[in-house]
Computed example of a mutant assay.
Amino acid sequence: MERPLDPEAALHTAEMKALRELAITRFRERGRGYDANCDMPVENIEELHRAGWLRTTLSKELGGRGSNLDTDDPATYLQAQRTIAQGCPGTAHCVQVTNHTAWCLEAIGTKDQKERYLEPMRKRSFLGSFVGSEAKRKHMYMMNTTARKVDGGWVVNGEKNYATNAPTMGFAIIFVALEGAEDYNQNHQMIIIEPGMKGVSMDHTWYRPNGMRATPSSIITLDNVFVTEDQLLGEPGAYPRQRWQGKFHLGFAATYLGATEGMYDWYLDYVRKRGRGRDGIIQMRTGEMKIQLEAARAIFHHAITCWKTKSVVEAELASMAAKSTIAHVAFELSHKIIHAAGSTALFDEFPLSRYLRDLETHVLHAGHDRTAQIIGQSELGESFDSTLQR
């Protein structure tokens, strides 16, 4: 009889325990410097590369750990993501994006593309970026950035934003609309671009948010960029038809959960050291937070399991529910920790204010109202798309 999946098993390996120690010591300590200047967390990235965590979603044949939702091990990469976020949510998101990029490229890329963009990941911290976001986009899958067919390839024009990892990336998968087709199932196309290509420019100074400042996410401008056929990733419409967006819900949920846990664990240590553990109100608030965290962990693990026990759509809906629930728990704990820890805890010498700002900024990605509407549509028997996030 096949043993049921235990999503928590990955947390108890020696490698994961070493990763947690790295995250809550060196990553957390470096966070203040990255945050101040909106810098790439390059030291953290280098350490994660040496330990193999930047390739977690890749197959073992390509030097990875063989963990993603399409394999028999859907948990390891998500638990690693969660663990990194306990120390530095910004670093965790950089890792999430490069792992999602690598996973998709291995699944649908050509042999040449894998050799050009995945093999270098064995040797150095060769980061990928997944760039769909752009200003005034009509729909998640309907792009303003266009590609026009010409002799020998395509000419691409447009402006993309929130290009995570752009300051040090090796390549980016860019979403464009192919001219001549109206429906996104026919015109949505992934193309691979590299820094330094003619017509590609990047603005790294644009990204100055309130939180997640250790995740530089630049503007990329594409001005008559010529791309050859071998720079197209997959067929037109492959990304929406293969439901890739739905596979990424839990990556965000893992970062939300890990950041909330990191903030909570720091808070516990802070109030204990100040002898405030005997205060009845603080005891009650701490108990409330623990209860909420346990609920968040349970729905996270349930959603991971659904990818092996339920249909794809059911797993996507469970992942959306987990992502939204964990985001709300993050907001609740943020509020309670501020009041329980007191104003001194918000001084720059402590990491609490960075956790708060990172969570406040990052959980907006969940699109809570849209998430609730989609889940409501499914419950009421109406049509819905569980890959959407907004």
Rank of each mutant, 00 (worst) to 15 (best):
P4F: 15
A10Q: 07
L11Y: 05
A14R: 11
M16G: 05
L22W: 14
L22E: 15
I24R: 08
I24T: 11
R30C: 14
R30E: 15
R32Y: 08
R32C: 00
R32I: 07
Y34M: 13
C38H: 07
P41I: 02
V42L: 13
E43L: 07
E43W: 11
I45Y: 10
G52D: 07
L54G: 09
L54S: 09
R55Y: 05
T56L: 15
G63C: 07
G64F: 04
R65F: 13
D70N: 09
D72P: 00
D72S: 10
A75P: 06
T83S: 10
I84P: 02
Q86I: 14
Q86N: 01
G87N: 07
G87P: 04
A92V: 10
N99H: 00
T101Q: 08
C104A: 07
L105K: 00
L105E: 02
I108Q: 00
D112M: 08
E119L: 13
S133Q: 05
E134A: 01
M140R: 09
M143Y: 15
N144L: 12
T145R: 06
A147E: 07
R148H: 15
K149E: 15
G152A: 05
N157T: 13
E159L: 08
N161C: 13
A163H: 09
M169L: 12
E182W: 06
Q186Y: 08
N187G: 05
M190F: 13
I192M: 10
I193E: 08
P195K: 03
P195T: 08
M197Y: 06
K198T: 10
V200H: 09
M202S: 11
M202V: 15
Y207K: 03
R208K: 12
R208C: 03
P209Q: 06
N210W: 05
N210Q: 07
T221V: 12
L222V: 08
T228C: 07
Q231S: 11
G234T: 01
E235D: 00
E235R: 00
G237K: 00
G237V: 02
P240C: 01
W244S: 00
W244G: 00
Q245M: 14
G246E: 00
K247L: 14
A254F: 04
T255Q: 11
Y256K: 01
M263R: 04
Y264D: 14
W266D: 15
R274K: 13
R274T: 02
G275R: 11
R276D: 09
D279E: 13
G280A: 11
Q283Y: 03
M284P: 00
A295G: 05
A296Y: 14
F300E: 11
H302N: 13
A303P: 08
A303E: 04
W307Q: 01
S311Q: 11
E314T: 03
A318M: 08
A318V: 01
A318F: 03
A322L: 12
A322M: 07
K323P: 01
S324V: 02
T325W: 05
H328C: 10
A330V: 02
E332R: 13
E332W: 11
E332F: 14
L333N: 15
I337H: 11
A345I: 01
A345N: 05
L346C: 10
L346G: 06
D348K: 10
F350M: 03
Y355I: 06
D358E: 02
H362S: 04
H362D: 09
A366R: 05
G367N: 03
H368R: 00
T371I: 12
I374W: 07
Q377V: 00
L380W: 12
S383W: 04
S383A: 11
F384P: 01
S386A: 15
Q389E: 05
R390F: 13
